[in-house]
Design a protein around this nucleic acid. Structure first.
Lengths: 218, 218
DNA sequence: TATAAGGATTTGCCAAGGCTAACTTTCCAA
DNA sequence: TTGGAAAGTTAGCCTTGGCAAATCCTTATA
């Protein structure tokens, strides 16, 4: 349907959304020059995939969002499949999925979803959009904004930075990990957390990328 | 590494090989104009993937052949995987594999091969090259050239024409089918064959695409 | 309020892969 | 042996998706 490049731009816009996305922000995200991003935005606007206000930014139209969600679904299903079925490590699945997602037909997507039992979370904890773009957002908080001294469960880790990912992995932090914030550094916002009986320090920059949920005890 | 287009040309050259392949033959195979094929041949020659003799044709160099075999391996592994693991039908797997093969890393290829138990035949009966391009050719005969009145086993069916494929499927002919040629039409070369107790007629054009092996009784 | 910095766009370039139309080579058959 | 058909190539054009450099907006701050 759409080319690899178009799909990549739509996905980035979605990841950076839902508000207006600036050309530079988009260009940086895709590691492309601002000129290239501008040109592509104009083409996407032509196809009615984005609304573009010159010098202000671009945002996905409904049509563009659906297209983006379809790619995101493929990506996350593939990550789940590569991890669960083929046993690839959490660090490698992102890059593999990134390439395969563009070559996945609707048919094959369905087959994989079925095979996996229609999962709703990928191995990083991200929600998997439904076949028609339905997204169930459970309003997870970033770890850095989470309440102190409560039982937290990690829901999402970032999927696009292997080095952060392996740091987290090495420190036992992945979706499902239960932890508690002991204290927050007043100066740099770093967190002292407890995983089981073990204490760890997590920098605020990393903590902002880890999403958690917590149970309200009742 | 190489672009999708380059990989497609190499694969076609390999399928049409091993002798010199003409520009028109290549162009027809890829459904592309002669001019495009010429241009690409020049580029492939530049990269030392083919030897090109102007006005005569092109043939893969060792380097080009290895590259082609790598694509063929990915294609056939994917077909096997899609068929065995995800249960796709024999008619659909070719087109899916055609798209996915270009996005498959060496790593993932290995994982799939391992997962499948390093198979040596795909679901169409075609041999799967090894990870370094090793190909075990068991010199199968086309059905149309096969001896009469002997127990034959179907080894390969063509993988690239869904209509022929489903005709064969509907008539119970796939890799593993055992059959016997009863007689050959003197005029059009059509075959009367017996599958189990059932008699069928197979046109010579289709029979030329089905490869069989036969046991020498000893 | 003026201005400089930084974001956005325009312009002009490139390479890959396509195409058609025109031209050149090859080679078969009369 | 030769003429024409078929195969191969060349030339010129198009689109997509990149880039750098120059220029144009916006906006924050002095």
């Amino acid at each position: 349907m759409y080319s690899v490049a178009v799909e990549d731009y739509l996905k980035s816009l979605w990841k950076l959304g839902p508000n207006n996305v600036g050309t530079k922000q988009l260009a940086d995200n895709l590691r492309v020059s601002k000129a290239s991003a501008t040109k592509m935005i104009l083409r996407l606007a032509e196809k009615e995939l984005v609304d573009h206000i010159p010098y202000k930014g671009a945002s996905l139209t409904k049509k563009g969002e659906l297209e983006a969600l379809s790619i995101v679904r493929k990506h996350r299903l593939l990550e789940t499949f590569l991890s669960q079925t083929l046993g690839l490590g959490r660090e490698e699945i992102h890059d593999e999925a990134e390439k395969l997602e563009h070559a996945l037909s609707k048919n094959l997507e369905m087959a994989i979803a079925e095979y996996l039992g229609n999962p709703t979370r990928d191995p990083h904890g991200h929600p998997i959009p439904g076949p028609n773009g339905e997204l169930y957002n459970e309003s997870d908080l970033p770890l850095c904004d989470s309440p102190i001294n409560m039982s937290l469960t990690v829901m999402q880790v970032p999927d696009d930075d292997p080095s952060i990912l392996s740091w987290l992995e090495n420190n036992g932090i992945h979706p499902g990990t239960e932890l508690k914030i002991i204290s927050r550094d007043k100066f740099d916002g770093g967190l002292n957390v407890k995983i089981g009986a073990i204490k760890k320090r997590i920098s605020s920059s990393i903590a902002s990328l880890v999403k958690i949920s917590f149970e309200v005890e009742n």
